[in-house]
Design a protein around this nucleic acid. Structure first.
Length: 551
RNA sequence: GCGCCAGUAGCUCAGUCGGAUAGAGCAACGGCCUUCUAAGCCGUGUGUCAGGGGUUCGAAUCCCUUCUGGCGCGCCA
């Protein structure tokens, strides 16, 4: 544990023993809450324990608080004063030693600072983007990529063994449509009035793939059965699309440990296996020639088809098999999926299917992202595929850059409906938070390069200005922010942290000079900045945003 | 009709699993560079926390209800 986490533990144990020394309280096991008061005059930390347990001990809160404070005593290393205030808050005023001790740890652990270890090793699988390989990645996938990737990084820092995964939907109905569309476009290159399937994919990209095939293989597929042409073109097109997705995601800084193919489920016994399990658990029945999941037994609105009348498994069934594979076959402790909010209807029935298969549904967590609306000149940009409008991820990267895109997508909690302001994202000014943060990093680097230090030892006690203390406190909060981000499945907390850290640094910069006549002060502030730089770099790494040494 | 998500300053959003006088950024105005990066800093004010009711020492936060917006409710994925 680090920084604030550690000092919270420290205070908790002091409070706990003081509380348990009160007669009548020894059989209560108190849950202790430590928070940071908003008002500075209320101390550095506070607890509400006296208000919480006053009833159980038949005392008024202030009276109980006084007793606890009495038991706490005044001989603790990091505490300078303890006071009762308000309705019964116990406020702790700290000396700065815990911050100085933390800076020591930061400087010795460097870029590894803040990497927690869990008591027992836990494995997590984070799945995100997982776009259909029937077309290019779009703006919604871009948000999913930024959120999922950062979230996976956060879990690594929080001590989990984490795997990043892309679920490749390379089977099923949409692939069939993809094949038929390609086939029709290919035929149209030879015969203009060749019919195009009613619900086919009408995008430009399908035509390009067909033309691409024709360039390479000419009329090879002109006089073959439809099924042969469709299969061949689907393979051809999938390879192109998947390669493109990998390329663009790579540019975007998103790299996966696993590409899991849906087709592998269909080509193995995985589908049959899950059907057997569900059936053995009495969760299926047959009706109208189809196999159904009795979802209504599991608090769902209606039952769901697993295997259609024509014998083809539904996407839902494949998805159940997929999640069963993650949680049972591969045995991850936790599976996190990042989905667009338009799939929210799928969440409950997926969890319930897992429950029916004997898996604790709590082991699957779905992060729902609200949809992104593009804004330009204060107007919503239609996401139609008309030319010149940014709809795909590679266009977005080209237009606003990876850093701005990833920073902006992670500036909002996934649950908020966000507007992506294209004008703002490309503005290289203070209005654009990503530059504000990166500028702070570049400034730190430049100072650390410009200032020459000798090997004399720093004296952290010299760090006592308002700005220095604020910066140290912020640095000590890093690990807590990771913990909270993980708990809430919300990477935007880290973006906000990066901004706050940058802000505290900029304030420090304007108030305190590093280079000075005083050699000890110079080296002391140098070390402070050094520590700060490690943390800002780590935060930007988590977000997938680059940390430029010069700007 | 049923369900999920949201509603906080002019705008975009925070708000530490119920805490003390609800906070940032942007936008507006005024100040700060002969010294380490002015893409920066400092200062000035703004609220019916969508409305109503309830729970308790205490509610933006929890419960009920109404309103508004987004999205779902296929033998599609």
């Amino acid at each position: 544990m680090y920084g604030r986490q550690k000092i919270t533990e420290y205070l908790s144990s002091i409070i706990k023993s003081a509380f348990e020394n009160i007669s009548g309280a020894d059989n209560i096991s108190p849950s202790i809450q430590i928070e940071t008061p908003k008002e500075e005059r209320n101390g550095d930390f506070s607890t509400n324990i006296a208000m919480k347990y006053s009833k159980a001990l038949a005392m008024n809160p202030r009276q109980l608080a006084d007793l606890i404070v009495e038991n706490i005593g005044n001989d603790h290393k990091y505490i300078s004063k303890v006071q009762v205030a308000g309705a019964g808050f116990i406020n702790f005023y700290m000396n700065n030693d815990w911050l100085y001790d933390e800076l020591d740890i930061i400087l010795s652990e460097k870029y590894a600072y803040g990497q927690n270890k869990l008591a027992e090793s836990k494995r997590i699988n984070v799945e995100y983007v997982s776009a259909n390989p029937t077309g290019p990645l779009h703006i919604g996938n871009a948000r999913g990529g930024a959120v999922g990737d950062a979230l996976a990084n956060i879990y690594k820092w929080a001590g989990w063994e984490c795997e990043k995964e892309f679920y490749l939907n390379d089977a099923g109905n949409q692939i069939k449509k993809f094949a038929q569309s390609l086939s029709a476009r290919y035929m149209q290159l030879y015969q203009e009035d060749y019919p195009f399937p009613e619900d086919g994919y009408r995008g430009e990209d399908i035509i390009l793939i067909a033309e691409n095939y024709k360039e390479l293989f000419a009329d090879k597929l002109l006089n073959v059965p439809d099924s042969v042409r469709e299969a061949e073109l689907a393979d051809f097109g999938l390879k192109i699309n998947i390669d493109n997705m990998k390329k663009v995601l790579d540019q975007y800084g998103v790299a996966y440990d696993t590409w899991f193919k849906e087709s592998d489920l269909h080509n193995s016994s995985a589908i049959d296996d899950i059907v057997t399990i569900l059936t053995e658990n009495g969760a299926t029945y047959e009706k109208d020639g189809a196999l159904w999941f009795k979802a209504t037994d599991y608090d769902c609105e209606k039952d769901e088809v697993l295997i259609r009348q024509n014998g083809v498994p539904t996407y839902y069934l494949a998805d159940i098999a997929y999640h069963f594979n993650k949680l049972s076959v591969r045995n991850f402790d936790l599976a996190v999926d990042v989905w667009g909010a338009d799939h929210h209807g799928h969440v409950h029935r997926m969890k319930m299917a897992l429950k029916a298969a004997g898996i604790d549904p709590e082991r699957l967590h779905i992060v729902l992202m609200q949809l992104v609306r593009l804004v330009k000149n204060d107007e919503a940009v239609r996401m139609s595929k008309r030319k010149g409008e940014i709809v795909t991820l590679d266009e977005l990267i080209e237009d606003v850059g990876v850093d701005a895109a990833r920073f902006v997508f992670n500036s909002y909690a996934p649950s908020t409906h966000m507007d992506f302001d294209l004008d703002l994202a490309i503005k290289q000014s203070s209005e654009n938070p990503v530059f504000y943060v990166q500028y702070a990093y570049a400034r730190m680097c430049s100072i650390l390069e410009a200032v020459e230090i000798t090997d004399i030892l720093p004296d952290f006690v010299l760090l006592n200005s308002k700005q220095e203390i604020a910066l140290l406190k912020r640095m000590a909060d890093f690990s807590t922010q990771i913990e909270l981000s993980a708990k809430e499945f919300d990477p935007s907390r880290m973006t906000k942290y990066a901004y706050d850290l940058a802000s505290d640094f900029h304030s420090f910069y304007n108030a305190c000079r590093v280079k000075s006549e005083d050699e000890v002060l110079t080296v002391t502030r140098y070390r402070l900045l050094e520590g700060c730089r490690y943390i800002l770099k780590n935060t930007l790494d988590i977000l997938g945003v680059s940390a430029p040494q010069k700007m």
